[in-house]
């Protein structure tokens, strides 16, 4: 399997504060890679470095085979991003949002048209297509947000706490979309603080105080720690944390 994300001793310092401390991992094509950690553990900082939003202090990292130091701009064409805040414009309609994001990723007019129709149909939003996003319920917005983040068929999509505030049934539907994307060969890099969601990932990585404390499939992690759910694993590791949340 092709390796899509690769880091070695990746570090980010803000003055004396080491936000991310020498993390090394690899993510394969189509994998759903979960990034867990308490607030302030360094999840978001690590993700921002991989997205080209923040320059690493030291260490190596490649995303889609592209070096984050030398060509951060090239990485951007190959990734999608959905943040914990909304990625959609509430004063634009569903179609306008799709067309806008497809447009800034440089899709051709035909592709934009085709993609937006396809998306609207897939999400079952035909009736809402020309309504403002602010009129959609939260769960739908989140699903639309995810669809928009992969509208340009990126190699990797980064999801920063994508299901915050969404009710469990909607979260299930959201994860179905993630599986769907993963089957199409899109690598999913997801941070979450819903520990039950960690079970849905192919592999998870738990960060404590900027370091990776555990990295394996959910099943093996539970086995190694001798517990029956990821929540227990997480609490065992998180107890060691010296930093408090931000």
């Amino acid at each position: 399997m092709e390796t899509v994300i690769k880091t070695k001793d990746l570090t980010k310092r803000f003055g004396d504060f080491v936000a991310v401390d020498k993390i090394s991992f690899e993510v394969k094509k189509g994998e759903i890679f979960g990034f867990l950690g308490a607030n302030g553990a360094g999840k978001t900082t690590a993700m921002r470095m991989l997205c080209g939003l923040s320059r690493p202090t030291s260490g190596e990292a490649t995303v889609a085979g592209i070096d984050v130091y030398h060509n951060p701009e090239d990485i951007k064409k190959n990734i999608g991003y959905m943040s914990q805040k909304f990625s959609l414009y509430e004063d634009l309609t569903v179609l306008e949002n799709i067309k806008f994001y497809a447009g800034i990723y440089g899709l051709s007019d035909n592709d934009i048209k085709e993609k937006s129709n396809e998306l609207v149909e897939k999400l079952g939003l035909q009736e809402q297509a020309n309504k403002l996003v602010q009129s959609l319920p939260l769960g739908w917005r989140q699903k639309l947000s995810f669809s928009v983040a992969i509208v340009h068929q990126p190699k990797v999509v980064f999801l920063d706490e994508p299901t915050g505030g969404v009710d469990p049934s909607m979260r299930k539907q959201f994860w179905d979309m993630i599986y769907d994307a993963s089957e199409k060969g899109i690598t999913i890099f997801v941070t979450t603080h819903y520990l039950d969601e960690a079970e849905y990932c192919d592999r998870i990585c738990i960060m404590v105080d900027g370091r990776i404390e555990a990295l394996d499939t959910p099943a093996l992690l539970k086995k190694n720690f001798g517990v029956d759910n990821i929540t227990e694993v997480f609490y065992q590791l998180a107890r060691k944390a010296k930093r408090s949340g931000d």
Partner: peptide, 14 residues
């Protein structure tokens, strides 16, 4: 404020 700026910065749009 909305967080859309981050999404824009992650896009290839300069």
């Amino acid at each position: 404020e909305l967080g859309t700026m981050e999404v824009l910065l992650v896009s290839p749009f300069k």
